[in-house]
Design a protein around this nucleic acid. Sequence first.
DNA 1: AGGAAAAGTTGAACCAATTCTAAAATTGAG
DNA 2: CTCAATTTTAGAATTGGTTCAACTTTTCCT
Lengths: 204, 204
Amino acid sequence: MSGLRERQKADRHRRIIDAATELFREAGYEGAKIEAIAAQAEVSIGTIYNYYQNKGDILGAIVAMEVNEVLNAGQGVVGSPPANVGDALDTLIGIYIEHSLNYLSKEMWRQAMAISTQLPDSAFGQAYTALDRALTEQIRALIARLQEIGLVRSDIDGPAVGELIFNNMNMMFIEFVKRDEAKIPELRAAIRRQNRVVVTAIGV
Amino acid sequence: MSGLRERQKADRHRRIIDAATELFREAGYEGAKIEAIAAQAEVSIGTIYNYYQNKGDILGAIVAMEVNEVLNAGQGVVGSPPANVGDALDTLIGIYIEHSLNYLSKEMWRQAMAISTQLPDSAFGQAYTALDRALTEQIRALIARLQEIGLVRSDIDGPAVGELIFNNMNMMFIEFVKRDEAKIPELRAAIRRQNRVVVTAIGV
DNA sequence: AGGAAAAGTTGAACCAATTCTAAAATTGAG
DNA sequence: CTCAATTTTAGAATTGGTTCAACTTTTCCT
């Protein structure tokens, strides 16, 4: 294990991702030519296609890193949530939203979302769907946790509510990245307002 | 008015849309080459680009026809809704979903959605967003109507609830068109289940 | 009718992602 | 150290959407 070949492979992966991240942010997804990414990563075009099936997969790798970080941060909230249904949801969703532009620009998100709906069966499409599902599961886990604590009624349909909340948030996020001038605080406020009716319905 | 030039223009528009609709359904969006659409419509490639800014706009014109039909059909439900909140929502959403595959295949929907997030400022992107907003407004109108009738509490945040319901439905629809094997009845049932908690919260 | 201007049509050329190929370089095993 | 396997490389070929300068057709005016 960990021979020279392995290390070089990992290194090339990293260089490609780093180069792509930088160029995607600078020039946009379309504007970042494969040739330029290859040059910046100091590999040939052929090598890029040896590591990633297509340009979208490179973006996919970056998205996956970002979402996995977010999922990780979300664990903390699910483990010990605020003692109030509205705040608990707001905190978790806040983590998602506040972290969302760390690595990815809005334009990168738009491209990622577009590719995932365009090619749902591609490697990237399936990975993206899995990430969405993981986020849904985390919201469901939060609701289940709140039911255990006794903050949420035990007779409500937790999984359905979790999906409802995720779907609404996700759609709002899609609209958010579609408008460059849209701001995070407004997004959070709008979602909080929408969730209010759900919160009153499911709270004890 | 209605000179030769006008008639030819309308005729070419129609021929292009007809050709594109047929080829998109037969060969898929990507599979339908502009060259083939031009040949089938008996115009040149250049003429297509004179009528539509890009390939996506052709699809956009088809989507707009479909959504406008759906909006029209929805008017009936808003005008005289079923005397029960759950059924009212289910009926309106049912119209949206049942009509959705009349002209457009799932693959065409995927492409349309992808393009609208990819290029939100293009003619197509803006038109698509406007259609989404029109659907949201229709759901809000239904809720307002139900409030008038006294079936929905007057102290709830109607606009926020309408958007919540639309966003959830839309997201479910996106997932639906992403999976070719997904079936309409299951989609409707899942949405009904998610809406249940909202219905109980807003019903008098 | 005649002819100039406006409007529209045409297809060859361009561009960037992707694929393919054959040669060169690198690595690991014996 | 040497050879076979694997990987990288440069560059040519392919492909399909999009652009553009030259050519037609329609309109409109006298």
